[in-house]
Amino acid sequence: MVENRPFLKILTHAVLILGVLFLCFPVWMALVASTHPGDALVRSPIPMWFGDQAVENYTTLLSGGVAEAGGVPVLRMMWNSLLMALGITFGKIAVSLLAAYAIVYFRFPFRMGFFWLIFITLMLPIEVRILPTYDIVTNLGMLNSYWGLTVPLIASATATFLFRQFFLTIPDELVEAARIDRAGPIRFFFDILLPLSRTNIAALFIILFIFGWNQYLWPFIITTDVDLYTVVMGIQRMVNIGEGLPIWHLTMGTAILALIPPVVVVLAMQRLFVKGLVESEK
Results as ranks from 00 to 15, higher is better:
Met1Lys: 08
Arg5Ile: 13
Pro6Thr: 02
Lys9Gln: 03
Val15Pro: 07
Gly19Leu: 10
Val20Arg: 14
Val20Lys: 13
Cys24Trp: 15
Trp28Gln: 14
Ala33Thr: 15
Ser34Thr: 12
Pro37His: 14
Asp39Ile: 12
Ala40Asp: 14
Arg43Ile: 08
Arg43Met: 15
Ser44Asn: 11
Pro45Asp: 11
Met48Tyr: 14
Met48Leu: 15
Gly51Thr: 14
Val55Ile: 09
Asn57Phe: 01
Tyr58Cys: 13
Thr59His: 13
Ser63Asp: 08
Ala69Phe: 09
Pro73Tyr: 06
Val74Arg: 05
Leu83His: 01
Leu83Glu: 00
Ala85Met: 02
Leu86Asn: 00
Ile88Gly: 01
Ile88Arg: 05
Thr89Asp: 00
Thr89Val: 02
Thr89Glu: 02
Ala100Asp: 04
Ala100Asn: 04
Tyr101Ser: 04
Tyr101Glu: 11
Ile103Glu: 07
Tyr105Ile: 06
Arg107Ala: 11
Phe108Asp: 13
Trp116Tyr: 12
Ile118Arg: 01
Phe119Thr: 11
Ile120Leu: 09
Ile120Phe: 12
Leu124Gln: 10
Asp135Pro: 02
Val137Asn: 04
Met142Tyr: 08
Met142Arg: 04
Leu143Pro: 04
Leu149Ser: 09
Thr150Met: 13
Val151Ser: 01
Ile154Ala: 08
Ala155Gln: 00
Ala157Asn: 06
Thr160Leu: 10
Phe161Lys: 06
Phe163Gly: 02
Phe163Tyr: 12
Leu168Phe: 06
Asp172Trp: 08
Glu173Cys: 01
Leu174Gly: 05
Val175Gly: 05
Arg179Met: 13
Ala183Tyr: 12
Phe188Glu: 05
Phe189Pro: 00
Phe190Gly: 07
Asp191Tyr: 07
Ile192Lys: 02
Ile192Arg: 03
Asn200Glu: 06
Gly212Pro: 06
Tyr216Lys: 09
Leu217Arg: 03
Leu217Asp: 09
Trp218Arg: 00
Pro219Asn: 03
Phe220Gln: 08
Ile221Asp: 02
Ile222Leu: 06
Thr223Phe: 06
Asp225Leu: 03
Asp225Met: 08
Val232Tyr: 05
Met233Val: 03
Gly234Leu: 07
Ile235Val: 14
Glu243His: 01
Met252His: 07
Ala255Lys: 05
Leu257Phe: 05
Leu259Ser: 11
Pro261Ala: 00
Pro262Met: 02
Val265Arg: 10
Val265Ile: 14
Leu267Asp: 05
Leu267Trp: 11
Met269Ser: 13
Gly276Asn: 05
